[in-house]
Amino acid sequence: MDLLTSALTGIFLPIFLGVLARRKDYIAAKNRPVLQQFAVRIAIPALVFSSLSTMDTGTAGQFLPMSLGLFLFFSMSWSSLFLLIFLLQKKSAWVKQFRSELLIMAFTGNLAYICWRLHELVIGPEGLQRGIFYTAFYWPFLLTFSFLSIAVFGLKQQKSLDRRELLYNVTPVLVFMAAGLAVGISGVRLPLWLSGFVSSFGNMAIPLVLFGMGLSLTVGKSLRTVGYLIPFLFLRLALWIGATLVMVQLPWFDEPSRGVLMINALAPLGVNPIIIGDMFGMDTEFIANSTIISTLLFLLFIPVIFFLWA
Protein backbone atom coordinates (compact mmCIF):
# COMPACT_ATOMS: atom_id res chain seq x y z
CA MET A 1 0.00 0.00 0.00
CA ASP A 2 2.86 2.38 0.81
CA LEU A 3 4.37 1.70 -2.63
CA LEU A 4 1.05 2.37 -4.35
CA THR A 5 0.60 5.62 -2.41
CA SER A 6 4.12 6.69 -3.36
CA ALA A 7 3.44 5.97 -7.04
CA LEU A 8 0.13 7.83 -7.10
CA THR A 9 1.47 10.91 -5.35
CA GLY A 10 4.72 10.88 -7.33
CA ILE A 11 2.86 10.80 -10.63
CA PHE A 12 -0.34 12.77 -10.14
CA LEU A 13 0.64 15.39 -7.56
CA PRO A 14 3.05 17.17 -9.97
CA ILE A 15 0.39 17.04 -12.70
CA PHE A 16 -2.22 18.48 -10.31
CA LEU A 17 0.15 21.26 -9.27
CA GLY A 18 0.77 22.05 -12.94
CA VAL A 19 -2.97 22.27 -13.64
CA LEU A 20 -3.40 24.51 -10.59
CA ALA A 21 -0.53 26.77 -11.67
CA ARG A 22 -2.12 27.09 -15.12
CA ARG A 23 -5.58 27.93 -13.76
CA LYS A 24 -4.15 30.58 -11.43
CA ASP A 25 -1.78 31.85 -14.15
CA TYR A 26 1.02 31.40 -11.60
CA ILE A 27 3.52 30.81 -14.42
CA ALA A 28 3.08 33.09 -17.43
CA ALA A 29 2.15 31.31 -20.65
CA LYS A 30 5.27 32.60 -22.42
CA ASN A 31 7.49 30.98 -19.76
CA ARG A 32 5.90 27.54 -19.79
CA PRO A 33 7.85 26.25 -22.84
CA VAL A 34 11.07 27.14 -21.00
CA LEU A 35 10.32 24.55 -18.29
CA GLN A 36 9.75 21.90 -20.92
CA GLN A 37 12.96 22.81 -22.74
CA PHE A 38 14.97 22.62 -19.52
CA ALA A 39 13.50 19.19 -18.76
CA VAL A 40 14.05 17.77 -22.25
CA ARG A 41 17.48 19.25 -22.90
CA ILE A 42 19.13 19.12 -19.46
CA ALA A 43 17.26 17.19 -16.77
CA ILE A 44 16.26 14.13 -18.83
CA PRO A 45 19.73 13.66 -20.39
CA ALA A 46 21.19 13.86 -16.85
CA LEU A 47 18.72 11.19 -15.65
CA VAL A 48 19.59 8.93 -18.59
CA PHE A 49 23.33 9.30 -17.93
CA SER A 50 23.00 8.70 -14.18
CA SER A 51 21.01 5.52 -14.71
CA LEU A 52 23.09 3.99 -17.50
CA SER A 53 26.45 4.81 -15.94
CA THR A 54 25.69 2.53 -12.97
CA MET A 55 24.40 -0.52 -14.86
CA ASP A 56 25.97 -3.97 -14.89
CA THR A 57 26.96 -6.04 -17.94
CA GLY A 58 23.81 -8.19 -17.72
CA THR A 59 21.67 -5.11 -18.03
CA ALA A 60 23.82 -3.80 -20.90
CA GLY A 61 23.00 -6.93 -22.88
CA GLN A 62 19.37 -5.80 -23.08
CA PHE A 63 20.12 -2.54 -24.90
CA LEU A 64 19.84 -3.94 -28.42
CA PRO A 65 16.76 -6.14 -27.74
CA MET A 66 14.89 -3.27 -26.10
CA SER A 67 15.77 -0.85 -28.91
CA LEU A 68 14.65 -3.34 -31.58
CA GLY A 69 11.54 -4.00 -29.50
CA LEU A 70 10.58 -0.33 -29.69
CA PHE A 71 10.72 -0.38 -33.50
CA LEU A 72 8.68 -3.58 -33.58
CA PHE A 73 6.09 -2.09 -31.22
CA PHE A 74 5.81 1.11 -33.28
CA SER A 75 5.37 -0.93 -36.46
CA MET A 76 2.58 -3.09 -35.01
CA SER A 77 0.68 -0.26 -33.31
CA TRP A 78 0.98 2.14 -36.27
CA SER A 79 -0.11 -0.35 -38.91
CA SER A 80 -3.03 -1.63 -36.79
CA LEU A 81 -4.38 1.83 -36.00
CA PHE A 82 -3.81 3.03 -39.56
CA LEU A 83 -5.98 0.21 -40.89
CA LEU A 84 -8.74 0.91 -38.35
CA ILE A 85 -8.72 4.67 -38.90
CA PHE A 86 -8.72 4.16 -42.68
CA LEU A 87 -11.84 2.03 -42.37
CA LEU A 88 -13.60 4.14 -39.71
CA GLN A 89 -13.13 7.48 -41.48
CA LYS A 90 -15.62 6.35 -44.13
CA LYS A 91 -18.31 6.03 -41.47
CA SER A 92 -17.38 8.75 -38.97
CA ALA A 93 -16.91 12.43 -39.79
CA TRP A 94 -15.19 12.89 -36.41
CA VAL A 95 -12.55 10.26 -37.22
CA LYS A 96 -12.01 11.78 -40.65
CA GLN A 97 -11.58 15.26 -39.17
CA PHE A 98 -8.96 14.18 -36.64
CA ARG A 99 -7.43 11.23 -38.47
CA SER A 100 -3.88 12.63 -38.46
CA GLU A 101 -4.03 13.44 -34.74
CA LEU A 102 -5.55 10.07 -33.89
CA LEU A 103 -2.86 8.22 -35.81
CA ILE A 104 -0.08 10.19 -34.10
CA MET A 105 -1.68 9.41 -30.73
CA ALA A 106 -1.99 5.74 -31.67
CA PHE A 107 1.73 4.97 -31.40
CA THR A 108 2.86 7.62 -28.92
CA GLY A 109 2.59 7.37 -25.17
CA ASN A 110 4.18 8.28 -21.88
CA LEU A 111 6.73 5.47 -22.15
CA ALA A 112 9.29 7.55 -20.31
CA TYR A 113 8.31 10.00 -17.61
CA ILE A 114 5.35 8.26 -15.95
CA CYS A 115 6.43 4.74 -16.85
CA TRP A 116 10.06 5.29 -15.78
CA ARG A 117 8.74 6.08 -12.32
CA LEU A 118 6.75 2.86 -12.26
CA HIS A 119 9.64 0.82 -13.66
CA GLU A 120 11.81 1.97 -10.77
CA LEU A 121 9.14 1.52 -8.09
CA VAL A 122 7.88 -1.89 -9.21
CA ILE A 123 10.95 -3.55 -10.75
CA GLY A 124 13.84 -1.61 -9.23
CA PRO A 125 16.93 0.11 -10.71
CA GLU A 126 17.26 -2.51 -13.46
CA GLY A 127 13.66 -1.73 -14.46
CA LEU A 128 14.50 1.96 -14.84
CA GLN A 129 17.58 1.13 -16.93
CA ARG A 130 15.62 -1.15 -19.24
CA GLY A 131 12.92 1.49 -19.50
CA ILE A 132 15.56 3.95 -20.65
CA PHE A 133 16.90 1.37 -23.11
CA TYR A 134 13.42 0.92 -24.53
CA THR A 135 13.09 4.63 -25.23
CA ALA A 136 16.65 4.99 -26.53
CA PHE A 137 15.53 5.69 -30.08
CA TYR A 138 12.09 6.99 -29.18
CA TRP A 139 12.46 10.38 -30.87
CA PRO A 140 13.99 9.11 -34.14
CA PHE A 141 11.33 6.39 -34.41
CA LEU A 142 8.62 8.84 -33.39
CA LEU A 143 9.61 11.27 -36.13
CA THR A 144 9.91 8.49 -38.72
CA PHE A 145 6.40 7.22 -38.09
CA SER A 146 5.09 10.79 -37.80
CA PHE A 147 6.43 11.61 -41.26
CA LEU A 148 4.85 8.39 -42.49
CA SER A 149 1.52 9.45 -40.96
CA ILE A 150 1.42 12.88 -42.55
CA ALA A 151 2.55 11.41 -45.87
CA VAL A 152 -0.55 9.22 -45.79
CA PHE A 153 -3.17 11.55 -44.27
CA GLY A 154 -1.68 15.00 -44.87
CA LEU A 155 -1.56 18.08 -42.65
CA LYS A 156 -4.28 20.33 -41.28
CA GLN A 157 -2.19 23.32 -42.25
CA GLN A 158 1.24 23.76 -43.77
CA LYS A 159 3.99 24.47 -41.30
CA SER A 160 7.74 24.27 -41.77
CA LEU A 161 9.75 21.96 -39.55
CA ASP A 162 12.03 23.75 -37.07
CA ARG A 163 15.22 21.71 -37.52
CA ARG A 164 17.11 23.57 -34.81
CA GLU A 165 14.46 22.81 -32.20
CA LEU A 166 14.51 19.18 -33.28
CA LEU A 167 18.30 18.94 -32.90
CA TYR A 168 18.19 20.64 -29.49
CA ASN A 169 15.58 18.16 -28.28
CA VAL A 170 17.14 14.98 -29.67
CA THR A 171 20.93 15.51 -29.54
CA PRO A 172 21.45 15.92 -25.74
CA VAL A 173 19.58 12.69 -24.91
CA LEU A 174 21.50 10.66 -27.50
CA VAL A 175 24.88 12.11 -26.45
CA PHE A 176 24.29 11.51 -22.74
CA MET A 177 22.95 8.04 -23.50
CA ALA A 178 26.10 7.13 -25.42
CA ALA A 179 28.26 8.55 -22.61
CA GLY A 180 26.29 6.68 -19.95
CA LEU A 181 26.56 3.41 -21.87
CA ALA A 182 30.32 3.89 -22.28
CA VAL A 183 30.81 4.54 -18.56
CA GLY A 184 28.48 1.74 -17.49
CA ILE A 185 29.94 -0.94 -19.76
CA SER A 186 33.57 0.01 -19.06
CA GLY A 187 33.02 0.07 -15.30
CA VAL A 188 34.68 3.46 -14.90
CA ARG A 189 33.94 5.08 -11.54
CA LEU A 190 33.18 8.76 -11.76
CA PRO A 191 34.26 11.16 -9.00
CA LEU A 192 31.54 11.49 -6.37
CA TRP A 193 31.23 15.22 -6.90
CA LEU A 194 30.59 14.71 -10.63
CA SER A 195 28.10 11.84 -10.27
CA GLY A 196 26.30 13.74 -7.50
CA PHE A 197 26.12 16.89 -9.60
CA VAL A 198 24.65 15.07 -12.61
CA SER A 199 22.24 13.12 -10.41
CA SER A 200 20.92 16.33 -8.87
CA PHE A 201 19.73 17.43 -12.31
CA GLY A 202 18.45 13.95 -13.15
CA ASN A 203 16.31 13.87 -10.01
CA MET A 204 14.40 16.90 -11.33
CA ALA A 205 13.47 15.28 -14.64
CA ILE A 206 10.34 13.24 -13.97
CA PRO A 207 8.61 15.66 -11.52
CA LEU A 208 9.42 18.58 -13.80
CA VAL A 209 8.03 16.92 -16.94
CA LEU A 210 4.88 15.85 -15.10
CA PHE A 211 4.44 19.38 -13.79
CA GLY A 212 4.86 20.70 -17.35
CA MET A 213 2.23 18.24 -18.52
CA GLY A 214 -0.18 19.72 -16.00
CA LEU A 215 0.60 23.20 -17.32
CA SER A 216 -0.50 22.14 -20.82
CA LEU A 217 -3.84 20.60 -19.82
CA THR A 218 -7.26 22.29 -19.97
CA VAL A 219 -9.67 20.23 -17.90
CA GLY A 220 -12.94 21.82 -19.01
CA LYS A 221 -12.33 21.40 -22.75
CA SER A 222 -11.05 17.88 -22.19
CA LEU A 223 -14.29 16.80 -20.53
CA ARG A 224 -16.34 18.11 -23.46
CA THR A 225 -14.61 15.69 -25.82
CA VAL A 226 -14.71 12.70 -23.49
CA GLY A 227 -17.59 10.95 -25.27
CA TYR A 228 -15.61 10.70 -28.49
CA LEU A 229 -12.20 10.02 -27.03
CA ILE A 230 -12.84 7.28 -24.47
CA PRO A 231 -13.79 4.64 -27.09
CA PHE A 232 -10.69 5.53 -29.13
CA LEU A 233 -8.42 5.46 -26.07
CA PHE A 234 -9.71 2.04 -25.06
CA LEU A 235 -9.22 0.82 -28.62
CA ARG A 236 -5.65 2.14 -28.52
CA LEU A 237 -5.13 0.43 -25.17
CA ALA A 238 -6.39 -2.92 -26.50
CA LEU A 239 -4.03 -2.74 -29.47
CA TRP A 240 -1.08 -1.78 -27.24
CA ILE A 241 -1.77 -4.74 -24.97
CA GLY A 242 -2.07 -7.02 -27.99
CA ALA A 243 1.23 -5.80 -29.45
CA THR A 244 2.91 -6.26 -26.07
CA LEU A 245 1.63 -9.82 -25.71
CA VAL A 246 3.26 -10.59 -29.05
CA MET A 247 6.55 -9.00 -27.99
CA VAL A 248 6.90 -10.73 -24.61
CA GLN A 249 6.85 -14.10 -26.37
CA LEU A 250 10.11 -13.27 -28.12
CA PRO A 251 13.23 -14.87 -26.59
CA TRP A 252 15.29 -11.67 -26.67
CA PHE A 253 13.98 -10.23 -23.40
CA ASP A 254 14.80 -11.19 -19.81
CA GLU A 255 12.20 -11.01 -17.03
CA PRO A 256 12.83 -7.37 -15.95
CA SER A 257 12.56 -6.31 -19.61
CA ARG A 258 9.28 -8.18 -20.00
CA GLY A 259 8.02 -6.42 -16.88
CA VAL A 260 8.91 -3.05 -18.43
CA LEU A 261 7.03 -3.95 -21.62
CA MET A 262 3.96 -4.98 -19.63
CA ILE A 263 3.90 -1.69 -17.71
CA ASN A 264 4.38 0.27 -20.93
CA ALA A 265 1.34 -1.45 -22.46
CA LEU A 266 -0.86 0.64 -20.12
CA ALA A 267 0.96 3.94 -20.71
CA PRO A 268 -1.20 7.04 -21.19
CA LEU A 269 -0.60 9.75 -23.76
CA GLY A 270 2.25 12.11 -22.96
CA VAL A 271 3.57 15.45 -24.16
CA ASN A 272 5.26 13.97 -27.24
CA PRO A 273 2.17 13.95 -29.51
CA ILE A 274 1.57 17.59 -28.54
CA ILE A 275 5.12 18.49 -29.63
CA ILE A 276 4.81 16.48 -32.84
CA GLY A 277 1.39 17.96 -33.57
CA ASP A 278 2.74 21.48 -33.18
CA MET A 279 5.69 20.72 -35.46
CA PHE A 280 3.43 19.46 -38.24
CA GLY A 281 0.57 21.93 -37.91
CA MET A 282 -2.03 19.65 -36.31
CA ASP A 283 -4.72 20.45 -33.74
CA THR A 284 -2.61 20.54 -30.56
CA GLU A 285 -5.56 21.56 -28.37
CA PHE A 286 -7.38 18.39 -29.36
CA ILE A 287 -4.27 16.33 -28.55
CA ALA A 288 -3.76 18.11 -25.21
CA ASN A 289 -7.38 17.44 -24.24
CA SER A 290 -6.88 13.79 -25.13
CA THR A 291 -3.81 13.66 -22.90
CA ILE A 292 -5.62 14.58 -19.71
CA ILE A 293 -8.41 12.06 -20.33
CA SER A 294 -5.84 9.36 -21.05
CA THR A 295 -3.89 10.27 -17.92
CA LEU A 296 -7.02 10.15 -15.75
CA LEU A 297 -7.88 6.72 -17.17
CA PHE A 298 -4.35 5.59 -16.36
CA LEU A 299 -5.08 6.29 -12.71
CA LEU A 300 -7.42 3.28 -12.78
CA PHE A 301 -4.67 0.96 -14.00
CA ILE A 302 -1.95 1.83 -11.49
CA PRO A 303 -3.47 -0.36 -8.72
CA VAL A 304 -3.73 -3.17 -11.30
CA ILE A 305 0.01 -2.91 -11.98
CA PHE A 306 0.87 -3.20 -8.29
CA PHE A 307 -1.62 -6.04 -7.83
CA LEU A 308 -0.03 -8.02 -10.67
CA TRP A 309 3.47 -7.64 -9.24
CA ALA A 310 2.35 -8.31 -5.70
Rank of each mutant, 00 (worst) to 15 (best):
L111F: 13
L215H: 01
S80Y: 01
L192A: 13
Y138V: 06
L167R: 15
I274G: 02
L121T: 13
S53F: 00
T108Y: 03
S149T: 05
L64K: 06
R117K: 07
A151S: 12
G69M: 07
L3K: 10
P191M: 08
P231F: 06
T108D: 02
D254W: 01
T225K: 11
Q129E: 02
I305L: 13
T144S: 14
L297C: 08
T244I: 15
A265M: 08
A243H: 07
Y138P: 01
G109I: 09
L103M: 13
W139N: 08
W309L: 12
L237C: 00
S186C: 00
R236E: 01
V260P: 10
F301I: 09
L111K: 06
M213Q: 11
I104S: 06
G212Y: 14
W252A: 10
V188T: 09
G131E: 05
P140M: 05
I206T: 15
T291D: 07
G277N: 01
A106W: 04
T59N: 07
M282V: 12
F232R: 02
A310S: 14
P191N: 00
V175N: 09
G154I: 14
M282S: 13
K91F: 05
L88C: 08
G220W: 07
A43Q: 11
H119T: 14
F153E: 01
